[in-house]
């Protein structure tokens, strides 16, 4: 009875999907208008867009980053470093992977869901890059994963494996810091990390590893992501420790179980 009244009431006023439809229309029109406005603006006056983005970035920076990095990104002693010269690459890496804004002061910024939209991140990056020149966002041609696989594998073993492990499974550093796992990391972030050297990672500038060599490393990481271990389940790619634990717990465990079963049957 009550249910019936409720549904009639609903039917009487408006269609159940009306609210959703209204929201969709509203979003599409606003978004469309915004896209139209911004695209026309960029088509006509690129210089003013940059200013607009820089201004937007500056506002975002003042609201979200200035507490630690200073109002003019010059750093606050003992709290946050200066961002002069870090470049767009660093901002894009830190903010897109959620490492910045920092959740709390600790030994190392941890990855978490990003807090800003793509546009906002790009505005922040443009603003920081406008302060002082630094490494920019990498060209998409280096990120396709079509470089020299064997060369990339060798470069990875020589330059990256001592912290990130040969299979990119990650590893420990001093004082609770660590090199994170590289499986599932976007190529653009791998590249940006190499040029900007986030946290404890050293900078691999273009003289150290040329862009083509960086593309090779990305190619190898992509290969590792896309090709599961030929030997079967990889036990986390952690090497002999996980193998040893596995044989003691599951291998010997299974066999001891069988011995108990055999001996019990006989009694």
């Amino acid at each position: 009875m009550a249910k019936n009244t409720l549904s009639t009431a609903r039917r009487g006023r408006r269609h159940p999907l009306a609210t959703i439809a209204l929201i969709v229309i509203g979003l599409v029109s606003t978004g469309g208008a915004y896209a139209l406005f911004s695209s026309t603006a960029s088509a006509n006056t690129p210089a003013s867009t940059t200013t607009a983005t820089v201004d937007q970035g500056k506002k975002l920076f003042a609201a979200n980053c200035a507490t630690c990095h200073g109002v003019n990104a010059g750093g606050v002693a003992g709290v946050g470093p200066s961002l002069y010269g870090v470049g767009a690459a660093s901002v894009d890496f830190q903010v897109s992977t959620g490492r910045m804004p920092l959740a709390n002061q600790g030994v190392q910024a941890e990855q978490k869901p990003a807090q800003f939209t793509k546009d906002q991140i790009s505005a922040l990056a443009t603003y920081v890059a406008s302060l002082s020149p630094g490494p920019g966002i990498p060209d998409a041609k280096y990120l396709k994963g079509n470089g020299n696989l064997a060369n990339g594998a060798e470069l990875f073993r020589i330059n990256c494996a001592m912290c990130h492990n040969v299979a990119g499974a990650g590893g420990a550093l001093t004082q609770g810091k660590f090199a994170p796992t590289l499986s599932g990391v976007l190529p653009v972030h791998v590249y940006e990390a190499m040029v900007s050297g986030p946290q404890n990672m050293p900078v691999f500038n273009d003289k150290n590893l040329t862009p083509a060599q960086k593309a090779d490393v990305i190619t190898y990481l992509k290969y590792l992501d896309q090709n599961p271990s030929p030997g079967g389940i990889d036990l986390g790619n952690l090497g002999p420790v996980s193998e040893g634990l596995f044989i003691w717990i599951f291998g010997l465990g299974a066999i001891v179980g069988v011995t108990i079963w055999i001996a019990a049957k006989a009694n």
């Binding site: 073993r157 001592m162 002999p240 040893g244 044989i247």
Partner: peptide
Amino acid sequence: PSPVSAGTQPDW
């Protein structure tokens, strides 16, 4: 002889 991987251990 130059590279060493993180997590290099002997067998158990």
